[in-house]
């Protein structure tokens, strides 16, 4: 979609941007990209819908296992990660604002902050949740090895927990890659007040990652 005209000019790249020829103007292209991406986001929500469905079904069928399972999680790490992701969402939104106002340096700072929060999220997840839990046998399905289970369906809880959080973590990683790309291109002045489609779209993706976590957090950590 982003075709750049080859003619050399002193203007920054974003100001030289021309929309693809099958669009009537840049605004229409921007609108189309956003609609397309929102549709993509619906598919992401429904992808997680499968996990939510498994959660919902098994939680209702085996409430004891779910109660025991959420008791084995520490809400403080979940809450901490929620705050981290909310902050990252905020910095992402601010970076879009900065691009819209052509404050390139501030935008880059905010993107770096977003990346930092994303990495922090993954670190907390891995170091304080996955590794300690996995090592004492709190694992999904066949790999389950935790000897003190009281409910017979506890392995299922861990299956849902790991599937949900791992697929979410994969999205965090993909989001970080997208943000890194945007950051790189920001340094080349690709984006500015009249052209920032990719920043906006990356932002939408990152907010979706946050959105999913907003639901995963209470479902996994708080509801008992």
């Amino acid at each position: 979609m982003s075709t750049l005209s080859t003619s050399s000019s002193s203007k920054p790249l974003w100001a030289r941007y021309k929309p693809a020829i099958h669009f009537r103007n840049a605004a229409e292209e921007f609108d189309a990209c956003k609609l397309g991406f929102w549709l993509f986001l619906t598919t992401e929500v429904l992808l997680f819908g499968g996990i939510f469905c498994a959660y919902f079904i098994f939680r209702t069928l085996y409430p004891d296992a779910w109660k025991e399972g959420s008791g084995l999680l520490d809400w403080r790490f979940g809450a901490g990660n929620t705050v981290v992701l909310l902050l990252s969402s905020y910095t992402m939104a601010v970076s879009i604002y900065c691009i819209q106002k052509d404050q390139q340096f501030r935008a880059q700072l905010n993107l770096i902050a977003t990346l930092f929060f994303g990495a922090l999220f993954l670190y907390i997840k891995l170091a304080y949740e996955y590794i300690p839990k996995w090592s004492v046998g709190k694992r999904p399905g066949s790999m389950f090895d935790y000897p003190f289970a009281e409910s017979a369906h506890l392995p299922l809880w861990w299956s849902v927990y790991y599937c949900g959080t791992a697929i979410h973590a994969a999205h965090v990683i993909i989001g970080m890659i997208l943000i890194a790309r945007v950051l790189w291109r920001t340094t080349k002045r690709h984006y500015g007040p009249t052209h920032y489609t990719m920043v906006e779209i990356t932002g939408l993706y990152w907010h979706l990652v946050d959105l999913i976590w907003i639901f995963l957090f209470p479902l996994l950590y708080l509801i008992h």
Partner: peptide
């Protein structure tokens, strides 16, 4: 894990689900 989760292990069966 703090007080929040401590009761999680007492296996209180939810009423007849």
């Amino acid at each position: 894990h703090g007080a929040a989760s401590s009761s999680g292990n007492a296996s209180r069966a939810r009423t007849g689900v």
